[in-house]
Structure formats: structure tokens, C-alpha cells
Design a protein around this nucleic acid. Structure first.
Lengths: 226, 226
DNA sequence: TTACGCCAGATTGTCGACAATCGGAGTATT
DNA sequence: AATACTCCGATTGTCGACAATCTGGCGTAA
């Protein structure tokens, strides 16, 4: 680089990370036009790396590109989220089934400890709910890792994970579902501990269905308000 | 463009398509280093669009990029293919279940007609087997479309589809599995016709498991030979 | 007034050149 | 002879400038 090497990796990678963060947190609104020159200047880089980053984010489904018309932040409408939760149910169910057979006892114990920390957080603070959401995603990702299926981990981690976070940031204000979610998580860990893959998959699928119902209701309310 | 507009879309897109084709057909060997300058010259374009294409293919898992060390064609080893078929089983099973509820009678009838054409092809020619393979992928993709889940279609179509084709080109020589595969396809269409989603999912999962066993044996033989 | 075509500004797509980095050949040292 | 160091060629990463394209507003004619 010419002047400095502040972060790690290529500029295109840092641009992808920063852009993903801005999109997920809502700093960049859904459907917003992404101007290459403007973003390049904001990130202090040329348009080349930025264009590569946009390609990357397109693969992650965070932005939608139209030839000769630029890139826009993806819009999470009801249909898109419904599709996402459907796919998630299938993939995370599968991850649970595999994890029940593949995770070590130690990993399962750590998963339990993770839930203990979540419970602590919930008791202590009622305000910062998104922290629990991020922790919830940790839980799901650890199970994906436990499946030992690299492709599954990539799909749940690199792609859907970001969309999920984006959805969470949008609807995290009224998250009264943390309590039942935690119980469901505990049930899943119990099933893993018993090495009951079928049960673990069933519980995970129900858990995700419940999450979708909750999100769906929230969307209804928002649409009704608008 | 400066001189001509031979194909459609941006140069990065045509580069991605041509590269994907070269990789899938085996023209570019697995693990082969991809030199940007060389490829750019071969495609008659600058390195900018080519780099964007490589980013795209990285998202499709067809190439693996390492910062400051270039891009290489992905290597389909046993573990990777095993993971792929596992994920496929979950996703295509889901697609079948949804398709049983969502496809129109007309679409299901067209699916049956597609199988009739496959049968014709198999009877007429024993040699060009890959044609059946491509047709097989058509069958699977039509079911994915029938699910009406856009994310599922994208995943099965844009990403896994290419890896599957790549795998097929590698192992298409001795494809004695066409006959039983066709029968299994017919069973699946029957289940769709009866709107039995559970059965359709079960049959599809078995079908893919069978395909994996077949591929797995082939890999064993190759490894043994080597 | 409305519809059509046209022009200018802005934005995207592309290229060539330069800087940074990596890998390997060659040499010196122990 | 083996190891470490250094330098050089090759390759990747980045930038600035130019061409192609799209968008929106304006003017003109029916």
C-alpha cells in the first residue's frame, strides 16, 4: 500500500466487512442505492476494490446488482424472510442431527456454558437485548460447527448468518421471545447430550418455526402501522 | 466498449460464465493456478473485470482465493463431495416437499414429459451419457423451481448446480446408474402427482443418497487405482 | 397541454500503469 | 554440505483516467 496498512488483508476484504456491517446494522437502509465513488471515498480507497467487495456482498445476498444501474441494499420483505427461515429450518435441522453424532462431549458442555452466560445476561439487563440476539447466533453457529460439514458451516455462517443479523437489528426492539428461546436452546443441548439426533433436529426445527412466527407477527404489525 | 459488444452483459459476467464453463468441463484442472494476466488476455479483457469474475466464482465455491497468492480451481475431494451431497439431500428433500404443495398440475405433467424424453435418449444412445446427466440436473432444477422458494432455487441453481455438473463431468464415463435413477425420478413425479410431500421428500432423499453411494464407490476405485 | 426526442450531468464499466508482495534462485557463511 | 540471507522476476493489489451507458430535465411540435 502507498501510505499505511491499517487493517489486515486486501482492501476489498475490509470494504466487504465494513459494508456488510453497515448494511446489517441498518446504517445503510434497505433498498438504498450504493454509489461506488461515494463509498470508495468514504472508505479511502479506489473503486476497484470496492467493486470487488460489492461482488462479494452480492454473493452473500446482502446487495443486489443490476448491470449498468448500480447496486442496492437488499430489501427483506416478507417473502424473502419466509424463504430464508424455510431454508434455515432445513439446514439447521440437519446441522443438529449431525452435531448430535459428531460433537465432542466437551463441545456440548461448552454449549451449555454458553447458555448459562446468556441466562446471566438476560437476568442482569433487560435493555440491551441485541446482545442476546448475537449470543443466540453464536449458539446456532456453534451447532453448525459441530456438524463437521464445511459447506453447511459456510452457508449458515457466511451467508445466512448476515441476513439473520440484519433481520434481528430490524426487529430487536421488542424481543420478548428471549425467554422461551433460551428454554428451547436448553432442550436442544439436552438432546445433543443424549446423542439423540432425531430429537435435536425436531427441536431445532420447532425453534426456528417459532422464531419465524414471532418475526412474522412483527412484520404484520409493522405493515398494519404503515 | 471500445471495439465491439460481442456477448451480453458486462465483461465480468461473460468472464464468470466462460470461466465457470471451463472449470466445470474440466478444461481447467482441479487445483490449477489461475493466472489473472493470462486469463485476461485469453478472454480479451483487462484484469479488472476478470478479478470481479474470480470474486463471483469464489462465492460459487468454484475457485478458492488466497490473498496475495492468487486463485486456484477448487478440488473436489471426498470430504467436499460428501458435504455437498449431504446439504443437497436436505435442500432437495425440502424442495420436493414444497413442490408437492406448490407446483401446478401442468408443471408436474411437464416434469413427466421431461422424463419421457430422458427415456427416449437413454434407449437411442448408450454413448453420450452426459446428456442424461444434464437432463437429470434439469429435472432437479425444475423441482427446485416448483418449491417457489427463491433462496432455495438460488442455492440449488447458482451454486450447487455448478459443483454437481463439475462432479458429473469427472465421473460421467461409467454412468450405469441412469436406469435406476430414471425409475426413482418417476416415483418422485408420482408422489408429486398425488400431492404427497412427505413421500416425495423421502424418495428424493433416497435418490440422492443412492447417487452419493455411486459416486463414493467411483472415488474409491479411482483412489485405489492411484 | 401532452407527447416525443434530445442533450447534459452523473454513474457505471473498463483499461493501462504503478506499487506491494510473494516465491525461488543464487550466494555467502558456518 | 546445510542453512540463512539477499536479491530479482513474476504475480497480485491498487489507483487514476477514459469510454459507455443510464437518468432526468428541457425544448419543440402536434
Amino acid at each position: 500500500m502507498l501510505v499505511k496498512v491499517p487493517e489486515q488483508g486486501t482492501l476489498a476484504d475490509v470494504a466487504a466487512h465494513r459494508l456488510a456491517h453497515s448494511i446489517v446494522t441498518g446504517e445503510l437502509e434497505q433498498g438504498q442505492k450504493l454509489n461506488e465513488a461515494e463509498l470508495a471515498e468514504r472508505f479511502g480507497m479506489g473503486r476497484g476494490p470496492l467493486r470487488e467487495a460489492l461482488r462479494h456482498l452480492e454473493g452473500m445476498r446482502l446487495v443486489k446488482r443490476i448491470p449498468n444501474a448500480g447496486a442496492r441494499v437488499v430489501v427483506l420483505d416478507r417473502k424473502t424472510l419466509s424463504d430464508l427461515y424455510g431454508v434455515r429450518e432445513a439446514l439447521e435441522g440437519m446441522a443438529c442431527r449431525l452435531a448430535a453424532a459428531q460433537m465432542t462431549d466437551d463441545e456440548i458442555a461448552q454449549l451449555g456454558a454458553l447458555l448459562d452466560r446468556h441466562e446471566e445476561q438476560i437476568k442482569k439487563q433487560g435493555g440491551k437485548l441485541y446482545a442476546q440476539s448475537e449470543g443466540d447466533l453464536d449458539f446456532h453457529f456453534q451447532i453448525a460447527r459441530g456438524s463437521r460439514n464445511q459447506m453447511l458451516m459456510d452457508m449458515l455462517g457466511s451467508e445466512q448468518y448476515q441476513l439473520l443479523r440484519m433481520c434481528r437489528y430490524r426487529t430487536s426492539r421488542n424481543a420478548q421471545r428471549t425467554k422461551p428461546a433460551l428454554n428451547q436452546h436448553r432442550q436442544i443441548v439436552d438432546a445433543l447430550r443424549q446423542r439423540d439426533g432425531e430429537l435435536a433436529e425436531l427441536l431445532m426445527r420447532r425453534h426456528i418455526q417459532g422464531a419465524w412466527r414471532s418475526i412474522s407477527e412483527m412484520i404484520d404489525i409493522e405493515e398494519q402501522a404503515a
